[in-house]
Amino acid sequence: MFPISDDNAEPGTPIVTWALIAACVAVFFWQASLPPGADELAFYQFGLIPGVLFGSVTVADAPLPAWGTIISSMFMHGGFAHLAGNMLYLWIFGDNVELAMGRVRFLVFYIVCGIAATLTHAFLVPGSTIPLVGASGAISGVLGAYLLLYPRARVRVLFIPFPLILLRTFYIPALIVLGLWFVIQVLSGLGSDIEEAGVAFWAHVGGFVAGGLLIGFFKRPDVPFFHKPAPRVFDGRSERGPWR
């Protein structure tokens, strides 16, 4: 079960959300264009390596200072599925959060949540030499903000039963979708070895918590917490019966 859209239209154009998606996609195409070997090196040069950040190891000919990789790592991804999943979540939830903050504040919020997520992971494995890449930490902050702003918004999810028989979509309140997502991240983090390469679940947790804590400082004063979406209005004159 995973989200594919939400029923929470707000007036405005989420330019920063679109720009962040475009930037991540552009960086991914750049990664894909690198020759064999250079693509792997790029992870070590632009990904966040906790051991490098805390000075226990070094990377030869590093193009960025260690603190700079905290930012650059947010725009790199380990594969197409990694990129697609992150961009889908940003597309669904980022627009509403951006419109609730304004463009500049949303961009700052996104970066700060990404930093918080990255540092959460780094402090838990300070000597690790495995590069951390991906926008999911920053996007987790967006999810934490969305949960507090629009817990009653309807999120359309795709359900894939096992064994695969029939695909179904249905709407679930954001409180359940995002609350369950957060619980899964915590349980997955507790059940996995953070020292091994894989999903950085604690970065997700750190970003989500940061988003929830910071939303009060970044949202516009006229935007309430726990906002109730306006009911959808149907124009009967434009509707057609089942005979069409």
Rank of each mutant, 00 (worst) to 15 (best):
G68N: 05
W91A: 00
H204V: 12
M1I: 13
S192K: 10
R156G: 09
L164P: 10
L158W: 04
S238T: 14
L83I: 00
V209T: 03
D6K: 05
L214K: 09
R220G: 12
S128G: 03
I115K: 01
L119C: 04
F75K: 01
P231V: 09
P14D: 07
R103V: 08
L166M: 13
T13Q: 05
Y146I: 07
G47S: 13
V125Q: 07
T118W: 03
I139Y: 03
T69Y: 07
I160C: 14
G189Q: 13
G198K: 08
S188M: 11
A138D: 06
I184E: 10
H121T: 11
V186W: 05
E98R: 05
I71V: 15
L158Y: 15
G189T: 15
L167G: 05
G144T: 14
L166K: 13
I70D: 00
V125E: 07
A26N: 05
T69E: 04
D193I: 15
G212I: 07
I4E: 07
R240Y: 15
L213N: 11
F2W: 13
W243K: 05
M74G: 05
A81K: 00
A42S: 12
W18D: 02
G68A: 05
M74Y: 10
I71L: 13
Q45R: 12
L143R: 02
I194S: 03
Q185H: 08
L213V: 14
G206E: 05
R168P: 04
G68F: 10
L164C: 10
A197G: 04
H121E: 13
P242F: 08
S33I: 15
I160V: 14
L83E: 02
G94S: 03
E10P: 00
P36W: 15
G12D: 05
G47K: 11
I215Y: 14
T69M: 01
N96T: 01
R168H: 07
I111A: 05
G12H: 04
R152N: 13
G236A: 14
H77L: 00
L90N: 03
V27Q: 04
L149Y: 09
I71P: 03
L187I: 08
F159I: 12
W243F: 10
L167P: 05
S73M: 07
I172V: 08
G198I: 11
V157Q: 09
E40M: 12
V25A: 03
A100Q: 08
T58K: 10
R237K: 12
W202D: 02
T118S: 00
